Amino acid sequence: MQDEQALEIRASRGPVEYPTLVEIWRSAVRATHDFLEESDFDRIESNLASAYLPAVSLIVAERAGGPVGFAGIVEGNLEMLFVTDEARGGGGIGTKLLNEAITEFGVTRVDVNEQNSGACGFYLSRGFEQVGRDELDGDGRPYPTLHLELSK
């Protein structure tokens, strides 16, 4: 396991960094979202740098001079948190990103795909609880979404 002390959480450097963040997203989603249709994957990916990343406050986890994960926040909602597949699990990257989002950005809510059991377990084990569920995702697609809130 890599030394957690070598991990830095910082603000995103903006659009110049988006191609790297898209690569992290691709790695993470390919490893954890096997339920996504290829057309949905392509549609989301094509909108990441142009629409989704600019719409959130971004923080980046960096190790050994390179980004290994990122999170996006809007008004207390964690909109995205992705860690490259090579660095995911056991290294504390997701936890550090989540903690920074909570302490520095006031995050209290997150929506997560029900079929992504790893992400569901991650948030539930870190103090979030389910407060709602939608059968369809925000785009009306058949990906049930759980609404989670940080326990008081």
Rank of each mutant, 00 (worst) to 15 (best):
E8G: 01
P67Y: 11
S57W: 01
E79F: 03
S27Y: 02
L58E: 04
P144A: 09
R26F: 09
D40F: 14
G140R: 08
P54Q: 06
T32Y: 04
T95K: 04
R13I: 05
F105A: 14
R126Q: 05
R88C: 09
F35Y: 14
F122G: 00
F128S: 00
R141Q: 07
A71H: 03
L78M: 14
I93K: 12
L97C: 13
R26N: 13
L146R: 02
R88Q: 15
D40A: 13
G90D: 01
E100Y: 07
L150Y: 01
L53C: 04
V16M: 07
T95Y: 06
D34W: 06
A6D: 14
H147N: 03
G118E: 12
P144K: 10
S57M: 02
F128C: 00
C120T: 06
Q130T: 12
L150V: 04
R30N: 09
R133L: 13
M1D: 03
V22S: 14
G121D: 00
S46V: 00
D139H: 08
T20N: 00
L97S: 11
M1T: 05
V29M: 03
R43W: 15
L81V: 13
Q130V: 07
D34M: 03
R30P: 00
K96I: 06
I73M: 14
D137P: 03
T95G: 13
A64T: 05
D134R: 13
D40C: 11
A31E: 10
F70C: 11
A61F: 06
E45V: 15
N47W: 12
G89C: 10
P15N: 08
G92E: 11
I102H: 02
E114G: 12
D40L: 13
D85T: 08
L81H: 03
A119T: 07
N113H: 12
E75F: 06
N47H: 15
F105N: 10
R126W: 05
A64V: 04
P19R: 06
R10F: 07
E114P: 09
R13T: 10
G91L: 11
T84R: 13
V16N: 09
G72V: 09
W25R: 03
Q5W: 04
G72N: 12
W25P: 01
M1E: 03
L36T: 08
N77K: 14
R126P: 02
T84V: 02
D137R: 06
Q115E: 12
Q130S: 07
I44C: 05
I93T: 15
F122T: 00
S117C: 04
I93L: 11
L148A: 00
D3M: 06
R43G: 04
P67H: 09
G92M: 08
A31M: 09
V22L: 13
P142T: 06
G106P: 02
E86Y: 03
N116S: 12
E104N: 15
G127L: 01
F70I: 13
E129Y: 01
L36F: 15
L48E: 04
S117N: 07
T95R: 11
I9V: 14
G76S: 12
P67D: 10
S50L: 02
T103Q: 08
